[in-house]
Design a protein around this nucleic acid. Sequence first.
DNA 1: ATGCGTATAATCGTGTGCGAGTAATCAAGA
DNA 2: TCTTGATTACTCGCACACGATTATACGCAT
Lengths: 215, 215
Amino acid sequence: MAKRRKVGNLMALAVLSALVQQPMHPYQMASVLREHGKDQNMKIKWGSLYTVVQNLEKHGLVEAAESVRQGGRPERTVYRITEAGRAELTDWVRELLSTPEQEQSRFTAALSVMAVLSPREAADLLAQRLTALEKALAARRAALAEAAREVPRLFLIEEEYELAVAEAEIGFVRGLLGELTSGTFPGLADWQAFSETGIVPPELAELMERGLHAQ
Amino acid sequence: MAKRRKVGNLMALAVLSALVQQPMHPYQMASVLREHGKDQNMKIKWGSLYTVVQNLEKHGLVEAAESVRQGGRPERTVYRITEAGRAELTDWVRELLSTPEQEQSRFTAALSVMAVLSPREAADLLAQRLTALEKALAARRAALAEAAREVPRLFLIEEEYELAVAEAEIGFVRGLLGELTSGTFPGLADWQAFSETGIVPPELAELMERGLHAQ
DNA sequence: ATGCGTATAATCGTGTGCGAGTAATCAAGA
DNA sequence: TCTTGATTACTCGCACACGATTATACGCAT
């Protein structure tokens, strides 16, 4: 489905949306994005920014409006969005909003190989994560409440979403941690035994065989 | 903090964890990963797989064990994990488990530029998303329940996590959609007016000014 | 007047992610 | 028996991401 975009980097989306407001040179885009707290969710990588703008130009989604030299500083090129750029922007947003796409998170990857650690250690690490998550959530909640006094909710909605997801993660980690520390996690004994002795419990052994039958 | 890994691709993590079980050639790694449903969360990109294995070898995290030719097919190199590789694996998992890191999701990006659409259209698209999400969730829940009859929970935990997050997303989208369709979303009238006439309501206008004060 | 830190503005080089292509084997249908 | 299509197994090459670097100007203290 998701037809591949001429410029796929999500920073291109941010650039286009900044240029909708008014023409700018790349450095100013970064400033505006930062001002809008976009750097929170999307660290600004300078190399990418200039590459992305170039690519957008190459595909006719933006165009150079003027090239100004101020003092002896490097020349700045001011870009403006084109009609094609506007079309791409709205079409892209439509797709992103309507079509969920399964993304790969680092924590998911971590969980999928958690078994290489002992249950004890896994629990310790999850406890650390939980603390960090809770602290970060509190800070972000406060920042959001602060921002909400000035900025309309429409422009903070993505942060609300992130907080909702963060809460879910906290809930999950807390639950898992609870099961691990209380000992109610099913198969905990086997896992413990395996991590101490390296011996794979019988029911698992046959599973692995099957898993490895692929020649 | 997060010291940069010699090989940063998350597929390298999967490769290392597969090699812990037993030595394999690249194609077999892909089979094993697929068997374990790892391809659900992490589409297997062939180019990456071979690059990743090469890089792991370059950094001494895996080593070639033997090179077999079977029939007239291309030669297969079997790799085994090294001590350094084991160390890297556990260290990496420790970091990933304990240290939350703010990742950039496409939906977040979409929400942050949702204002370029009309509220009506945004609501339509969110409704589509909601339907798709619910359908996908039901399917994944069923698949998980099925798998849980054979595989111990420890090896399905990452899917449980993903489902928890998916539920949170559904909750968020449902809530937002409700506010949009019932008209209780604050600032909805302004948004509507702007999308029809292109006129920025006064309170917003001053905000933008400030946002653009960056020279 | 001199020196230092910071903001402005952009370029470059490298690593690597990954889609597309290649090529051989094998099972089975027509 | 010939063809078709799936499976196995890997290679290639481009495009992109991004860290590191460069270079000027300006404010401020000494």
